[in-house]
Design a protein around this nucleic acid. Structure first.
Length: 293
DNA sequence: TACCAGGACGTGC
DNA sequence: GCACGTCATGGT
């Protein structure tokens, strides 16, 4: 009987492997570490020289080795969009280089393989509510606990992983639940927003212009200007968004000789400078300032 | 011990 | 409209 189960198990793994697909790309403008470690996403972990990356209820394995980056997943088309692989980043970098900003050029040179992810919209909303006044390692821990407690356990390449909980699931939890996860004072923001989204969905946010979308996002409790910019940039492909956090303020003061102190005004300064390429510039600068220089 | 982290909210003016 | 104190949590 035990032997029978082993055979079934073996067949199921073979089948999963067969269904899964692998695609290979040039790594010049697609580097796994640059793309994942730059602070835009929290659900990934090192695995076999690459990373296992989770998004909503999906997962992939991504690995950069020499001049190629490979992506392997049962939802390969989803991750092709997730990694923004239809955008030509050489053109983005060329355009930004023409501005002749030394710090930005330095950052782009060091993080050429960074790409802006197209993440799951609801996951981005909850993740960045948790991110406020918090640090990245702790944000990752809280989100991981959230998924382990409320998500669905699945397997990929023999490894267990958890899906991101649905808004419906999150809406059943009292604030005290989120507080026990370590979310602190953000507990009520999470509970409140989960209930609002469960009630009305987020479909009404689709196809809005940036200004209207931002106004709508600011209605959720726990979403202010900075988190709204992150949600627009990482979840709604609004490349004109420029999130201003403490690291960006450092860049502004140290590398742009900035004298403003109001984050909203600093945001306007950068958006006026970078226009529709603001989001790209922001990620190069944030990642560079925080991790590379 | 004070300060910091991918900030936002409520209050007082 | 704007300035300011406060809000958990864990690391340095």
């Amino acid at each position: 009987m035990r032997k029978f189960y082993l055979i079934i198990l073996d067949i199921s793994f073979t089948l999963a492997y067969y269904i899964g697909m692998k695609r290979t790309y040039d790594s010049t403008y697609f580097n796994a570490a640059d793309t994942l470690e730059c602070g835009q996403v929290f659900r990934f972990k090192p695995y076999c020289g690459g990373y296992l990356v989770c998004s909503a209820d999906k997962i992939c394995f991504v690995k950069t080795e020499g001049d190629t980056t490979t992506v392997e997943s049962d939802d390969i088309d989803y991750f092709e969009n997730y990694f923004d692989l239809s955008t030509d980043y050489s053109k983005v970098i060329d355009a930004l280089s023409k501005l002749n900003i030394p710090t930005l050029n330095n950052c782009m040179q060091l993080a050429k393989g960074l790409r802006l992810l197209n993440q799951d919209r609801e996951e981005v909303i909850y993740s960045f509510i948790i991110s406020q006044n918090n640090n990245i390692p702790r944000i990752k821990i809280i989100i991981e606990r959230l998924c382990m407690q409320l998500g669905e356990k699945r397997y990929f390449m023999g490894e267990p992983y958890y899906t991101f909980p649905t808004s419906q699931k999150l809406a059943t939890c009292p604030p005290s639940f989120f507080k026990e996860l370590g979310a602190g004072y953000r507990d009520e923001y999470l509970a409140h927003t989960a209930q609002a989204i469960t009630l009305n969905g987020i479909e009404h946010l689709n196809n809005l212009d940036s200004a209207t979308l931002k106004k709508e996002l600011l209605k959720y409790k726990g979403i202010g200007p900075k988190v709204a910019d992150c949600v627009m940039l990482f979840g709604f492909s609004k490349m004109g968004a420029f999130p201003v956090d403490t690291w960006v303020i450092k860049v502004y003061k140290e590398d742009f000789s900035g004298t403003l102190s109001d984050p909203v005004k600093i945001n306007k300064f950068f958006v006026d400078t970078f226009g529709e390429l603001s989001g790209y510039a922001q990620q190069y600068l944030f990642y560079g300032k925080r991790s590379l220089i």
